[in-house]
């Protein structure tokens, strides 16, 4: 190729990405964009300020646009900024906006939590999606926001405070264990967001160290962990309830293969998600294995399609009580 990029894809990673992006031009676009800095997206926190008001206010100092007609809360700062300027602005300190990459906003748009619902955010820190859900829910209903480590809970808590989130209880537990206890005590949620820990292949633009840290063992490790979390999460979802599974990675082992595993074992339907970003269908064949065709309803967000980070989103509905399903299938 002869490109002089600062970071280099590891050979196996490159091989896998070429397998996903078979068109040479498409792969080249991908390779080009992952070596550029991400755009500066922010999300208006409608718990504290209206989109119109914030838009006017920010345009007094920066050039800001609202790229999506039906999502005025999503704003793009086009001005050149000093390092840290977005986080050090008074509007940020007052919680009027959250600095959040546009693709990461899509999981909550897919889940669409409503005021009054009982929602679980299983891997919540640093809280971008929790605060987005609280805004969508207008601080009504309840969000249980979980994370596993105290230092991550501290970051989550600081963001919940800054954004004026009042309908959330932050808890610190292993996600799978927590869901098992919820199920035992009959705590059942209307909606669950499982934004799972992952190998982070989609975050190369904002976190180029992933170029160095990536390895296949990590992909396999996360794939196992994602399945464990997903199985447990389903146990505390109401029948008819919805769960969004998302990752910021491209590897099918952490995306479609997890979806395929769940579809084979549990009474769930995958739902087609309509998002304001360009989505590609999930892959139905990987590593010589066929994957359930329903994964085509999942959404792959590639950086070269939207000038964003990479993401994967799948939405499910639980069709039947798991106990009675097990009884019938034993």
């Amino acid at each position: 190729m002869g490109n002089n990029y600062k970071w280099k894809m590891k050979p196996l990673f490159e091989e896998r990405m070429r397998e996903l992006l078979r068109d040479e031009g498409d792969f080249n676009e991908f390779e080009k964009i992952i070596h550029t800095s991400p755009l500066r997206f922010i999300r208006c926190n409608t718990l504290k300020i209206s989109c119109d008001e914030l838009f006017k206010r920010l345009n007094n100092k920066w050039k800001v646009v609202q790229p999506f007609r039906n999502h005025g809360e999503i704003m793009l700062v086009e001005s050149e900024l000093l390092p840290g300027e977005l986080g050090n602005a008074i509007e940020h300190l007052l919680g009027y906006y959250y600095v959040q990459e546009v693709s990461s906003m899509m999981s909550v748009l897919a889940l669409n939590p409503k005021p009054g619902e009982f929602v679980l955010d299983l891997c919540a820190s640093p809280g971008s999606k929790t605060t987005q859900m609280a805004a969508t829910m207008k601080n009504e209903g309840t969000i249980i926001a979980n994370d596993i480590k105290l230092d991550r809970i501290k970051i989550l808590s600081a963001n919940l405070e800054r954004c004026g989130v009042m309908n959330c209880i932050a808890v610190r537990n292993d996600g799978a264990g927590l869901c098992e206890r919820f199920a035992k005590q009959n705590f059942k949620f209307d909606k669950i967001l499982l934004d799972a820990p992952c190998s982070g292949e989609g975050t190369l633009r904002s976190s180029p160290k992933t170029f160095l840290m990536w390895n296949y063992k990590i992909v396999k490790k996360f794939s196992r962990e994602q399945r464990r979390l997903f199985i447990s999460a389903l146990k505390c979802l109401k029948v008819g309830g919805e769960i969004v599974y998302s990752t910021c990675t491209h590897s099918p082992e952490e995306n479609e293969e997890v979806v395929d595993f769940i579809l084979k074992k549990f009474p769930v339907d995958v739902e087609k998600v309509i998002l304001p970003l360009k989505c590609r269908s999930g892959v139905v064949n990987w590593g010589g294995k066929n994957i359930d065709n329903n994964v085509e309803k999942c959404c792959r967000i590639y950086p070269q399609d939207n000038d964003s980070e990479g993401f994967f989103i799948a939405k499910f509905k639980l069709l039947e009580d798991l106990e009675s399903f097990r009884g019938k299938n034993d």
Binding site: T142, L150, S157, E161, N167, I169, V171, R172, N173
Partner: peptide, 27 residues
């Protein structure tokens, strides 16, 4: 702190028995 959510006190108490509750609502 104030909590605007839909859970009752009893439900929050019950939650605290099965989860490590770190933060409730807003300071």
């Amino acid at each position: 702190r104030g909590f605007s959510g839909s859970m009752t006190r009893d439900e929050i108490d019950e939650l605290s028995e099965i989860a490590n509750v770190e933060v409730i609502g807003l300071y």
